[in-house]
Nucleic acid binder design. Structure first.
Lengths: 178, 178
DNA sequence: TATTGTTATACTCTATAACTATA
DNA sequence: TATAGTTATAGAGTATAACAATA
């Protein structure tokens, strides 16, 4: 089996072990970010939604849901919570009153900046052993992987794949129901 | 705000954006691995358990649960499923009949090798745009991060943190109950 | 009739807590 | 009384489907 050397030893690792290490670190980074944004009273899902709305205000819920890859019904509850906290607001489109355009409130804009600061502190924390050159090298390598696999830039990994017609390569081979 | 450049453009990214990219790629790698092992009729959690038992057979369920960072009750159902499929077996310790030592069956050993092949193919898939030098550089960078944050080498990221006495920095600031 | 958003339901996953048996 | 494992319960999170409003 390849990659039996311990992770920190600097020995050669096979592709399987390297991909595993990537998943392991990604999960670690994501979990720690979640702990940090919890201090702002929100979850990573909320943070991603605020960011998406801030980046492009005025879009319909469906447009945002489709970009983030989550179900419209899931978006409703996220928007409900953020609207209740006064960070986000729905504005009915007078042209087509079915649409609810999403906008940040002033408080929401402020909160989004706080999230940016938290994200930066989080990054410094996760990457603190790497100097500037190391970080640039890592960014270049990960950027190539992200481009190769067509990952959408601003979209949080916590959001699941689009439900309908998204799993053809992932057919369960047995009915594990218990 | 730092890191407004698109991911694939090669421009400079701030630490927040880089940590985000890491989380994004890690989630991608983990999800794709899950899809692959599904073709073997198991989940990533099963794969991690088989690997842990194969690496050190004969340990008690509690020892394994503690290493993987999951609840004993959760381990019971995982072991149940793998035992039902004939991949794993419990052996009562005659010395202390409360202990159930975990061992792979012959089929389980074979399945573990298949998992290794799937993991390697998965790694080749995820990393295919990187050549040998790139991979070595990436492994070195990620290895330093993993060592810095004391990530346990063989432990899958899908396993949640140990439940009791593990969340002191993650206190929810408001009672979001709805 | 088609589309946007909402509400309601069901299901999966996992944490917590009781319980059994061994010591 | 303490420990290993198990079973049972409950809770969170999320997918699916039905529904109301508007076009």
């Amino acid at each position: 089996m390849s990659g039996t050397a311990p992770v920190g030893s600097g020995g050669p690792v096979g592709p399987g072990a390297l991909a595993f290490l990537l998943a392991q670190l990604g999960a670690f980074a994501g979990r720690r970010f979640g702990e940090r944004v919890q201090t702002l009273g929100i979850t990573p899902a909320h943070a991603g939604l605020l960011r998406a709305v801030g980046a492009e205000p005025g879009r319909s819920q469906q447009a945002v849901a489709s970009q983030l890859g989550l179900f419209p019904s899931r978006l409703v509850s996220l928007v409900d919570e953020l609207e209740r906290d006064g960070l986000l607001e729905r504005r009915r489109d007078p042209q087509d009153r079915r649409h609810h355009a999403l906008h940040l409130t002033a408080t929401g804009t402020k909160r989004l900046r706080e999230i940016g600061r938290v994200a930066q502190a989080h990054g410094e924390d996760v990457l603190d052993v790497l100097d500037g050159d190391d970080r640039a090298a890592l960014a270049a390598l990960l950027g190539r992987l992200a481009a190769r696999h067509e990952l959408t830039p601003g979209v949080h990994p916590g959001y699941r794949a689009l439900g309908p017609a998204a799993d053809s390569a992932a057919t369960p081979p047995d009915g594990r129901t218990a």
